[in-house]
Design a protein around this nucleic acid. Structure first.
Lengths: 115, 115
DNA sequence: ACCTATTTGTCCGTATGTATG
DNA sequence: CCATACATACGGACAAATAGG
């Protein structure tokens, strides 16, 4: 599992952190039932404030992605299973696009269009 | 409009504040399109921290009750119209209950039961 | 067009409380 | 009982958007 933040990004740190967790869920680096590293650890590792990490975790909790409890930490709920599905679907889609000679920008544009 | 907090309550201050706003919406003290007092004002009036009020406002924003923007403040959205409906329905229900000789505790118990 | 005040947004720091293991 | 970890609240600082003069 690798949580990252981009100091150059304009996005708030806590959103970057939450997005990083979601990306790991899709990538398979974090799975249902896993416990996220404690906010304290993440804060120390990324050199951000503890509250910033907690806020990210709380937003994930509000989304239903993790179960957040005192003394226990943040555990990925089964409601995050959808991310694992994307974990399978996305590479498949990319392969199909490649076979058709569709580049990443064009594919992304199509996704946005449909969305 | 009268926002209140109960120091004796175990509920978090920011939730009490959000609840107080919702109550005012139901009571009719705040209506759609109204602008809530600035977080700074509320903080000073209730002697709580600015961040605590902002957190309450942000939770109301997450619920879609208010539109929160820098420099402008918190404006009640039309999605809060449901509260105004309760504003009409509740007194009506209470009147009917009174006519039937049903006390407040009994009525509340019925509400919980049905809920 | 400019400046200023207002107001929320984010981040950091500190402290204390509370549930978990 | 104790260490861990999140929950809340306070405080300070700066940024960014908005409104008004």
């Amino acid at each position: 599992m690798l949580l990252r933040i981009d100091p150059a990004s304009a996005a708030p740190l806590f959103e970057q952190l939450a997005a990083s967790v979601r990306t790991e869920l899709v990538r398979g680096g974090i799975r249902v039932g896993d416990r996220l590293p404690s906010a304290k650890e993440v804060a120390a590792a990324l050199d951000v404030n503890l509250h910033t990490v907690l806020r990210a975790y709380q937003s994930l909790r509000d989304e239903g992605v993790v179960d957040l409890r005192r003394g226990r930490g943040a555990v990925v709920t089964d409601r995050a299973a959808g991310y694992a599905d994307l974990h399978r679907e996305i590479p498949q889609l990319v392969e199909h696009a490649k076979a058709l000679g569709i580049g990443p920008a064009a594919l992304a544009a199509m996704i946005k269009e449909v969305y």
